[in-house]
Structure formats: structure tokens, C-alpha cells
């Protein structure tokens, strides 16, 4: 792990350098035209500094994104529609509600599938096939249908997130609950363990790594689901609404800062799930 810190830093630095070069290159034309219209003929150094501080750049420089993100996080009061904290909370609450619902449903279905063979034979092919279907395209339907039922706000977004979370969790959990080998099951049978005891002392502990692998995929998908769910209906708040508004009005910095916050939220959630996995594994006596 430690051996990769230097390479990661080097590659990240390389990306930042490329980003600055790209910002200069992409914004050059616009800035040059603006200066030419104003009758200026700036030298190279002035041009570079101008391309890196343009208010509506094609590609904002990294420091502009950082400053804009920081300003919209800390500047306006949290209740203001200009505060990214506000938007992030809206998206985060939908994503978390969906993650909880979807994961719970996925785990319950997996438990049912493990115990009823007919369910596995009839349902599993559909669950696996549905992985190949662009589920997110369903988002507008869910929103419109639930809107017709009078449900707006958090719930439709949470349901889309839940739907996205459901499949990775269900598939991972089915795999995990079926993972104990014949030897361990035979051992429990020689102890004349009841099915419930087999479930709680063998199947559930063995399934945890699989469950957490599914949960990590699911929590990232939940954020994507919540963001995309805000797109098609003109939601007022949320990171997706912020992205859409930024794209309508050409506010590049607003788009980039919303993206940054979305990335941080998503990475943090995945990190928290990973941490929970490690804590749980340690409590259960894993040595790692």
C-alpha cells in the first residue's frame, strides 16, 4: 500500500498538469477573441493568466474548481438554493434512503431465493438478465408514474436508487449465502443444527464479504441513481438539478463544483461501507 503512494501522487500531479495545459488550450480561442474585440493584443503570459481565470471557461482550471466548490459550500447559508451543502444533502438523503430500501429488499430476496429452489430457478435468470438492461432509463417513468400518484420529492428518487441497489446486493448475497462448502454444512449437520442455526452461524457469516462487495457497488449506484433521477423532471434542488441548471445557463464552474461534491459524496460513502466491512470483520475475528 505504502509503495503506491509516490506513483499515485506522481500520476495525480501529471493529471493536474495536463488539466492546466488543457485549460489554457481549450480557453485560448474564446479569450483571444474577447481580447481582440476589446482591441488588445496581449502577450503570452497575460493570455495564460487570462485563460486560467475566465469566468465561463470551456474547461476551468483546477484551482478555479476548488475555489468555486469551497465558496458554494461555505459561502451562502445552508438553506439558500445557492449552497452546495443544501443540494448535496437533498441528493444524499435520497441516495441513502434508496440504498437502505434497496439493500434490505435485495437481502430479503436473496434469503428467499436460497430457501426456495423454485424461486431461484424462475427469478435468478431475470435478475441476472436485468443487469444487462439500462435500468437508469426507467428513471423518468418512475418519476412520472409516482408523480401521478401524488408522490413527489424524496420518495421517487429514493425508489430509483433502491432499484439500482437491489440487483448487486441480491446477486452478491445469493452467491454468498450459497458459498459455504459441503464440508462445513456436513459438520453442522453432524451437530444436528437446525436450519435456522445453519443460517445464522454458517451462511450469514460466510456471506458477509460477498454482501459488502455488493453493497459497495450499490452505494455508488445509489448516488448515480439519485443524481440522474433529478434530471428528467426539472427538480428544484439536488446535485443533478444543479448540473442541469449549470448546463442550461452555461455555468461551467457550477457544473464542475457540483461534480466535485458528487464525487466526494460518492467516494466517502464507498469508503464508509468499506470501513464498516473492516470493523465487522474484526469483530467477527478476522485477522487482517
Amino acid at each position: 500500500m505504502r509503495a503506491s503512494i509516490l506513483p499515485v501522487l506522481t500520476v495525480s500531479a501529471g493529471i493536474v498538469v495536463l488539466w492546466y495545459l488543457g485549460a489554457v488550450w481549450l480557453n485560448w480561442q474564446v479569450v483571444w477573441d474577447m481580447q481582440a474585440r476589446a482591441g488588445h493584443a496581449p502577450d503570452f503570459a497575460t493570455m495564460v493568466s487570462l485563460t486560467l481565470s475566465h469566468a465561463r471557461p470551456l474547461l476551468p482550471a483546477p484551482h478555479q474548481v476548488v475555489v468555486e466548490t469551497w465558496n458554494s459550500l461555505t459561502g451562502p447559508p445552508i438553506t439558500s438554493p445557492r449552497s452546495l451543502v443544501n443540494h448535496a444533502m437533498v441528493t444524499l438523503s435520497a441516495a441513502l434512503a434508496g440504498f437502505g430500501l434497496g439493500s434490505l429488499a435485495g437481502v430479503l430476496l436473496a434469503v428467499a431465493i436460497i430457501h426456495v429452489r423454485a424461486l431461484e430457478r424462475s427469478l435468478m435468470p431475470w435478475i441476472i438478465a436485468s443487469q444487462a438492461v439500462p435500468v437508469l432509463a426507467l428513471a423518468p417513468i418512475v418519476i412520472v408514474a409516482l408523480g401521478a400518484l401524488g408522490m413527489t420529492g424524496l420518495m421517487p428518487k429514493a425508489i430509483i436508487s433502491a432499484y439500482l441497489c437491489f440487483f448487486p446486493v441480491a446477486i452478491g448475497m445469493v452467491k454468498g449465502l450459497a458459498a459455504p462448502d459441503a464440508l462445513s454444512r456436513d459438520l453442522l449437520r453432524t451437530y444436528s443444527a437446525t436450519p435456522a442455526q445453519v443460517f445464522w452461524t454458517l451462511r450469514v457469516p460466510t456471506s458477509l464479504p460477498y454482501l459488502f462487495a455488493g453493497l459497495k457497488v450499490a452505494v455508488a449506484a445509489a448516488v448515480v441513481g439519485a443524481i440522474v433521477a433529478e434530471l428528467p423532471t426539472g427538480a428544484q434542488a439536488g446535485l443533478g438539478a444543479r448540473l442541469l441548471a449549470g448546463s442550461y445557463f452555461g455555468q461551467t464552474l457550477q457544473i464542475w463544483s457540483a461534480l466535485t461534491v458528487a464525487a466526494v459524496v460518492s467516494a466517502t460513502l464507498v469508503g464508509v461501507v468499506g470501513l464498516a466491512e473492516r470493523l465487522l470483520a474484526r469483530r467477527m475475528g478476522a485477522r487482517a
Partner: peptide, 21 residues
């Protein structure tokens, strides 16, 4: 060694959000 951790990090990000850009 530098790219792999970054690649794994990107997998956790809502990449589709770059669409407006």
C-alpha cells in the same frame, strides 16, 4: 501502481455526471 488506485477510485464516482461538460 499510480493508475490502478485512481482507476478503482473512479469506479466509485458518478462518471455520468460529466455529460453536461
Amino acid at each position: 501502481r499510480g493508475l490502478l488506485p485512481i482507476g478503482n477510485l473512479v469506479a466509485a464516482l458518478p462518471v455520468v455526471g460529466i455529460a453536461p461538460i
